[in-house]
Design a protein around this nucleic acid. Sequence first.
DNA 1: TCGAAAAATTGAAGCGTTTCAATAGAACAA
DNA 2: TTGTTCTATTGAAACGCTTCAATTTTTCGA
Lengths: 343, 343
Amino acid sequence: MPTAKKPRPSIQDVARLAGVSLGTVSNVLNNPDRVKPDTVGKVAKAIDQLGFVRNDAARQLKAGRSKTLGLVVLDIANPFFSSLARGAEDAAADGNYSVILGNSSDEVERETRYVSLFEEQRVGGIVISPVDGVSETVTSLRSRGTNVVVVDRHIDSSIGCSISVDDVAGGRMAVEHLLAQGKTKIAFVGGPLDFQQVADRLAGATDAVKVSGSKATIKHIKTKALSVLAGRQVGEAIAGSPKSQWPDAIFAANDLLAVGLLQAFMFGAQVSVPADIAVIGYDDIAFAEAAIVPLSSIRQPAALLGATAVEMLVDEISNPSTHKHRQITFQPELVVRGSTQAS
Amino acid sequence: MPTAKKPRPSIQDVARLAGVSLGTVSNVLNNPDRVKPDTVGKVAKAIDQLGFVRNDAARQLKAGRSKTLGLVVLDIANPFFSSLARGAEDAAADGNYSVILGNSSDEVERETRYVSLFEEQRVGGIVISPVDGVSETVTSLRSRGTNVVVVDRHIDSSIGCSISVDDVAGGRMAVEHLLAQGKTKIAFVGGPLDFQQVADRLAGATDAVKVSGSKATIKHIKTKALSVLAGRQVGEAIAGSPKSQWPDAIFAANDLLAVGLLQAFMFGAQVSVPADIAVIGYDDIAFAEAAIVPLSSIRQPAALLGATAVEMLVDEISNPSTHKHRQITFQPELVVRGSTQAS
DNA sequence: TCGAAAAATTGAAGCGTTTCAATAGAACAA
DNA sequence: TTGTTCTATTGAAACGCTTCAATTTTTCGA
């Protein structure tokens, strides 16, 4: 049925139907207290009758500002980031903002697409957990006048605000815990090292081994991604190798990898966790506790990260003149479960 | 530092700097082949120099259309929906659309906020997994001229397109499997029943018991949410009750609940799965396989649902005159693991 | 009842694009 | 050279809203 789409009613149409001027309709929408109650009534009725929906494009064009924030995360399928997103959304709602979400899936190209989209939409600001090249992305955004806050990654305060978790400390805590369990052949599973988070966790881990003064060693097993699948592949490779070459403990760069490792160890092969190999992850996602072997992990306050980032962004938007860039670093927390400590 | 924010450069500014007219700049942006190559060069240089970013509000206002789609999901923290979102994003990218994501968290109010936001932004269309009252939401959107596709829920084809999975069949499969394992005291854990998905799964489950002609029974244990936490609470309540009252099998309305049940059974209490109580979930999220007891589940093609929904939406947008509403129903699939079948 | 002050309403201007009819310029044949 | 046909460029109009100075209506005290 080739029905010509009828155009959407405009404020003009509403005004005509209600028998008032266009300015009055606008006031009903934005400053109802300036309008006589029965006029409000008439206009409301007309709006209802026509199914009028305010055109945000026009509104924004005129007003210049937008009550929308953009959030770009690395991997929405990772519960860490969905918690972060949830925290961001809630904080935004408090400030009367809405959040629209873009998922970069670790791909620079997708990240760029979302950032451009948000910029063209003139969002009030962007919260981003960047794939890489933080400073370029951020400074170029800033140079064009877009407010940005970096989350889950540290940047220099000359550039902008950032909210992160001390990943070096987290890496250190994880490995110190493994060493305390008497483990000596430690493997760090994760990658690519372009991810600052991964590099930092590795740095902390390496440092912990060095500082311990023990004979313990650490080696890095690289992965292409931080996913369950990548973890499983590494796990299968390890399980398939001679037992003498096995590490006796693995620090996985995140819980997804750790879960993949556990899958490989418990099914395809018969690797005992933690007796043969202890495993500790990072993020403490909700599923860690319910993993096949309850997973020890380094807990990050994901929702808090998201909420704080939004708060700082809103502060920057609201008080451009008094705003000071800040770097907030949260401390992670060790959560010990069965995967590193036999009960 | 009270720096007055410099206004963003407009097409006018670019035109001035490049020494051409505003129309030419617009052409460089939209129809570069209509412009002489060296003019394109001059304009590109000016754009670069000024850091010009096209104002999408103005563009949309004039053009009337938008290359953005809205997606509203029930719970982005649920891996089922993050897969769905990913599928939707990928399909959209193929059609040169972008997806912005809203998370309703099962709350009507949040859903309404996102739907209004998207409508005001004049997105090309909306894909929604509705909290409830499907038809009202959808028909009212449609009546105002917004294209909508419903996902993970069935609607009448007089209203619009929908992509769903046969939840009744899924519920039936789950319970038939439990019965085949010799289980007779079955509990269905899930709620609220306002969620059509939950109601359908329960209906299928009940039907399977009835049809079997066996002496098996099924009772419904209601939950307020479909989360890990809600599952754990139910699990603790069951484990804390006299063993004689335990069900011998539980069909959980989704995997999150099932994971929570497993947590409660394995830690707080000593319930053996599947010997004492078998557990089967729904969705087959990535973590099901790595759960403390590998979780049997009913698999849904989440990414495919999202992708198909977007494709139908894009079809409706692109071919308003020839488009026919369709209801697509995918069949779910039983995945058997250790939580229902001792190895 | 009248006039002044307050409250309510009006409508034109302008936000930054796209579009398109009009104009200018280039290329070529006669 | 002149006319003809392309190709390239121009700039005014319009999209739907908010804003705000100007105007009209209402309220209220005397």
